[in-house]
């Protein structure tokens, strides 16, 4: 046991590991807050679709040899979020079919572009790390770290300032609209924030696993907690703890960060599922 701590202390003398932990925890925190809204509004599929769009955009950006991928990926994903939200509400095209179309399309085009035009000698390695996150601990620039801190802070402030409106709109959109809440603007804000978080979280867990980071904490906490406030607070806590544990494990065991964090989230879900089951039986 002492060895473990020594090894960890050793690792944490490197700044890039500290950065990774801070960024990972912040991403987990903001994506779990958002996840509560997406799960309750039955919007989880939008998160999933957007992560595929972000993959396509990343592929194109990296092949085009841009110095900072974010500058392309973020606007493209935000635009896709707005479009998906619109089509999701239209009755003409089935919302879920539209999302499936866009997301699978982006996945295919992304892979095609990477495979055809990439100068890299290790294309399948690149694809794999975009889909599942980097194999080793992520290396982040100072800019990336500050970007993450800024965006997470924005999400948390949004949640604190608008928590009552968030509740009113998620629980009952029609009622909130009659009471004078700007529902359209709110939904747009949620779409934009979703896109931002997905692009951020992709750095940590890769585009295929992003949805897990968004929905697992919310689903876990809803097994046990029954009021909105407690669900929000507990899913933030669950997510932060799982992310920190996952990152530490991946450092110690040299496993891929993304899938380790998701695996810890799955364990947490199972635990909460059992607790919820026992609570119901009593």
């Amino acid at each position: 046991m002492k060895d473990v701590f020594l090894t960890l202390a050793d690792y944490f003398s490197y700044s890039f590991i500290r950065y990774a932990l801070v960024v990972g925890v912040l991403i987990a925190l903001s994506s779990s807050l958002l996840g509560v809204i997406l799960v309750l509004k039955r919007f989880s599929f939008i998160g999933d679709g957007l992560s595929h769009v972000a993959f396509g955009a990343t592929a194109v950006a990296s092949v085009a040899g841009l110095s900072n991928n974010m500058l392309v990926v973020l606007p493209v994903t935000v635009a896709a979020a707005v479009v998906l939200l619109r089509t999701g509400q239209s009755t003409k095209i089935k919302g879920d079919a539209a999302v499936a179309m866009i997301s699978v399309g982006a996945l295919a085009v992304g892979y095609l572009v990477m495979n055809t035009f990439s100068m890299s000698s290790n294309v399948s390695g690149d694809v794999c790390s975009t889909l599942f996150g980097s194999v080793a601990i992520l290396t982040l620039s100072k800019l990336d770290v500050w970007l993450c801190v800024g965006m997470s802070a924005a999400v948390i402030i949004f949640f604190i300032l608008f928590r009552n409106k968030i509740f009113a709109v998620t629980f009952d959109e029609s009622f909130a609209a009659t009471a004078g809440v700007g529902v359209k603007g709110f939904n747009l804000a949620v779409a934009v924030i979703t896109a931002m978080i997905i692009v951020l979280a992709m750095n940590l867990v890769g585009s295929l696993l992003v949805s897990a980071l968004v929905i697992f904490p919310a689903l876990s906490s809803m097994r046990v907690f029954k009021t909105f406030k407690s669900v929000i607070i507990s899913s933030a806590l669950i997510s932060v703890v799982c992310a920190a544990l996952g990152i530490l494990c991946s450092v110690l065991l040299s496993t891929p960060v993304g899938s380790t964090v998701v695996a810890v989230n799955i364990l947490a879900f199972l635990a909460f599922f059992c607790i919820g089951f026992v609570m119901k039986r009593r």
Binding site: L40, F167, F175, A176, F225, K226, F228, K229, V231
Partner: peptide
């Protein structure tokens, strides 16, 4: 939906 009665009524 996870919500207490009070949370729902207050949202009015």
């Amino acid at each position: 939906f996870p919500a207490s009665v009070e949370e729902v009524v207050l949202s009015g």
